[in-house]
Design a protein around this nucleic acid. Structure first.
Length: 800
RNA sequence: GCGGGUAUGGCGGAAUUGGCAGACGCGCUAGAUUCAGGUUCUAGUCGGGGUUCCUCGGUGAAGGUUCAAGUCCUUUUACCCGCACCA
């Protein structure tokens, strides 16, 4: 049957809305389910089908949960602060507020056309005063607890966007937004002390149900390493260099030291250093390099030896040279290393280039070829000689270092503190006042929200100043503490701020006394299932876990981990197999698909196109298969005439109910849909089924293709909404056939298949298998060596 | 370089976790319906060889374990993702 999908779909979307059936109930006795999808950034180009796939997974789970009797919270909102909107405003002169509202309207209509069962009464927009008031509140809490601080730092600066970027936003030395080259610039910036939560973030992973690769990425991002800090005395009396190493066992193999070009000891000992000019020249050269060049061009080691000052290896008293080189970073460890060329590849390269001694202290490898980084017996190492393993050698060395007071065990993290400000207009104002007398002062809570002022020019000022700096009425204020003249912070928060706590606000979106009511949070938290893209599992997820843990420590939220479970969907690639992008012109607009095929077909197709977690290219013709399926499914009404299906089909229906029920829980929508397609084919072959049986199938498909199922449900005379009807159950006993087809192999090669009763005893199975002509022929005249029978699966006869 | 992953027909992908490889869908071929295109329906569709049926080969490559391997082990290649001079 060809049906008028747009008529049916708008009919049911309207009815759902009028009956408020997808609204979550606070304080219900039902078990709760909180399903969360990553809220979109409302860009001007509208949604593409990737969004639809991303939301369809938990949409199906949520709809199924409702039918299973859960009180479901499945919200949506908009992460609306961000640069593209601001850039549009700069280009067109239209206020970001207007651009944002327009985009949100467009996104909303697109989402509604697909029939998502979001609770539209809880929509949030991170740029609304009612929302960002609480983002600012959390910032003040962070500030008051010493978790937000200001520091002068070399920052990644995008000369094109004129903003300071975090390391994460400038990966590969390119700006995340405009892809220009990043340069280094010294600036006063805000940091959040996320490193203080490094261990908690790591430990928390043990009790959550995240995909293994999600956990792994977070572990790598935090990058905890255990090693030792060691102090090296210098030839200059009273001075020392502190280093971090994970291989203190190789201390006897240290033949030089390397410090970062920016290491402060250079300034401190400038008067002793004979070649200070050469060092400064080298440092300037390095500063010109972008982070990208510095980390990517690894082939060639460069550096300069410090003349006039040397170091002393604390373990054997030997004097060793110190170099400055840009392969050592100021941002990790202490900015200084002990170099062991025999057992570290970078040190090896450097030593070869500069003709430095290489002393082997671990047996193994071939030092003429390269550094040996494996395990082995200690040699040339004084009291460590003869120790067979790295672990033991490290333990012994640490013992020595600690007893001599020259070093101790320590840990390091790759994760750095979070650079938390942007010199932009379209973001949350940082609620801080700079007072000459009092320093940094919080804006009082009762003055929140600190409103984003109106400006005429959205473009950032030269040199990375925020546009807010130009608004005198905003900048000039009274110090909340001393009442004297003061100036407001003019930077705004980065885009990650609003998304770091949005799942809390859904629980109580209009709460005016806090971020959300505690009792409601206790009911809904944690998020039971969070699904989103792999690109957000480090930055966004770690940032929000950090905020949540901080709020938990303050007693503001009731649990320490926000997300109980995390999964990720795969990308939808363009029909050409490339990533969808506007520039390639291969973006599929969900509106176009809904227009021609209908929302149910779109929903079915994005879930059927492949494994939910993997990337798959879009295919219009493949989607036609889903259209046929939906239409044929609707045709079932023409053969539902009271006559029941065959016993075999009854089993098939039970099997399918079981499979779909289980597959949805594992996001295996492709196989769930395939099973329903297969069942549909079988039913048409038989040619009839009861209305009751059709009712089961309609409810089974409802979470995936809800509009047509509501329509069919109504035709069948079903009670109420199909979307709220009871999820079909299955009879476990009826999920198995009374007889099974068994493969019979001779010497592992398939010879025949035989029908056997279920759970046929081994002996009987073998006897019946041998009775088959083809099997008999294959074993005729041969000696039977072994007979294997796996019940309900296979018989294998081994002959010689 | 390190970490994680993937590799199965012309394509997207299945395979009850060691038990009939290729479910389901697309595409393709033939036939029917249709004035025609589209739609719909029926049959076929991993490859080779003989053509009701049978036989041999087949899951990136090479070995191995096993009665039995897409699945486990060893070696290897290609691609994807993340991190990356992290000491």
């Amino acid at each position: 049957m060809k049906y008028n999908c747009s008529e049916i779909e708008s009919k049911w979307q309207k009815r759902w809305e009028e009956a408020h059936i997808f609204e979550a109930q606070d304080g219900s006795d039902k078990p709760k389910f909180y399903g969360l999808v990553e809220f979109p950034y409302p860009s001007g180009s509208g949604m593409h089908v990737g969004h639809i796939k991303a939301y369809s997974g938990l949409e199906v789970v949520s709809r199924k949960r409702r039918m299973q009797g859960y009180n479901v919270l499945f919200p949506i909102g908009f992460d609306a602060y961000g640069l593209p909107t601001e850039n549009t405003a700069i280009k067109t002169g239209v206020h970001p507020r207007v651009v944002t509202d327009r985009n949100i309207e467009k996104f909303t209509s697109q989402l509604k056309r697909v029939g998502f069962s979001f609770d539209w009464t809880r929509v949030i927009d991170t740029t609304e005063e009612e929302y960002y008031r609480w983002t600012q509140y959390i910032f003040l809490k962070l500030f008051e607890n010493g978790m937000a601080y200001r520091d002068t730092a070399l920052v990644n600066y995008c000369p094109s966007c004129k903003v300071v970027l975090s390391n994460e936003d400038s990966q590969g030395g390119k700006c995340d937004i405009c892809h220009s080259d990043i340069v280094q610039k010294s600036k006063d910036v805000w940091y959040l002390r996320i490193t203080k939560y490094a261990d908690k973030l790591l430990e928390g992973l043990e009790k959550v149900d995240y995909l293994p690769n999600v956990k792994q990425q977070q572990v790598n991002w935090i990058g905890k390493s255990t090693g030792a800090f060691v102090n090296f005395k210098l030839t200059e009396e009273g001075e020392q260099l502190r280093i971090y190493t994970t291989r203190c066992d190789t201390l006897f193999g240290v033949t030089f030291m390397v410090i970062a070009p920016e290491h402060p000891i250079i300034e401190k000992l400038a008067h002793k250093i004979k070649n200070i000019d050469a060092l400064k020249a080298y440092r300037e050269e390095c500063a010109k390099k972008t982070e990208f060049e510095r980390t990517q061009l690894v082939k060639d080691k460069t550096g300069v030896k410090i003349e006039g000052v040397a170091a002393i290896n604390p373990i054997n008293g030997k004097e060793i040279p110190i170099f400055i080189a840009d392969y050592v970073m100021m941002g990790y460890g202490t900015g200084a290393i002990m170099a062991v060329p025999a057992h570290d590849e970078r040190d090896y390269d450097f030593a070869k280039k500069f003709g430095i001694d290489i002393i082997q202290v671990i047996k193994g490898g071939d030092l003429s070829e390269g550094a040996y980084t494996g395990d082995g017996e200690m040699i040339n190492s004084g009291f460590l000689n003869g120790i067979a393993t790295k672990k033991d050698a490290i333990a012994k060395t640490l013992e020595f270092l600690e007893s001599e007071g020259i070093g101790e065990e320590g840990v390091q993290y790759k994760m750095k503190d979070w650079a938390f400000n942007r010199q932009r207009y379209w973001g949350e104002p940082i609620p801080i006042v700079h007072c000459e007398k009092c320093g940094l002062v919080s804006v009082p809570y009762e003055e929140l929200p600190l409103r984003l002022p109106e400006v005429k020019e959205f473009a950032p000022g030269e040199g990375g100043e925020s546009p807010l700096a130009k608004i005198e009425s905003f900048v000039n204020c009274k110090c909340p503490r001393c009442g004297g003249a003061a100036k407001r912070e003019t930077d705004t928060m980065p885009q990650w701020a609003g998304s770091s706590w949005y799942f809390l606000r859904y629980i109580d979106p209009h709460c005016s006394t806090g971020i959300a009511d505690m009792e409601k949070m206790k009911y809904w938290l944690p998020v039971d299932w969070y699904n989103g893209g792999m690109e957000h599992v480090t930055r966004h997820m770690i940032y929000s876990r950090f905020w949540h843990k901080f709020l938990y420590d303050l007693g503001i939220v009731p649990c320490d981990e926000p997300y109980a479970k995390r999964t990720a969907q795969g990308l939808i690639l363009g029909p050409d197999g490339d990533k969808m992008s506007k520039s390639k012109g291969n973006v599929i607009d969900p509106n176009d698909v809904v227009d021609t095929y209908g929302a149910d077909v779109l929903r079915t197709y994005v879930l059927f196109m492949g494994d939910y977690g993997s990337a798959a290219p879009w295919s219009d013709s493949s989607m036609k298969g889903c259209k046929r399926f939906i239409e044929r499914f609707a045709d079932l009404t023409t053969i539902a005439k009271g006559r029941g299906v065959t016993p075999e089909l009854e089993v098939a229906i039970n099997k399918t109910v079981k499979k779909v029920t289980n597959d949805i829980e594992e996001l295996k929508f492709n196989t769930a849909i395939a099973a329903m397609m297969g069942l549909l084919n079988d039913i048409f072959e038989v040619g009839h089924l009861t209305l009751d049986e059709l009712g089961t199938l309609v409810r089974l498909l409802c979470p995936i293709a809800p509009h047509i199922c509501e329509e069919l449900w109504e035709q069948l005379g079903g009670e109420g909404f199909c979307s709220l009807a009871e999820w079909p159950s299955y009879d476990e006993a009826k999920t198995v056939d009374s007889s099974v087809e068994i493969a019979v192999q001779v010497n592992g090669k398939l010879k025949a298949t035989v029908m056997l009763p279920l759970n046929c005893p081994k002996d009987e199975a073998i006897a019946l298998a041998k009775a088959d002509e083809r099997v008999a022929a294959a074993i005729d005249g041969k000696t039977i060596v072994k007979e294997i029978a796996v019940p309900n699966k296979i018989v294998n006869i081994v002959v010689r």
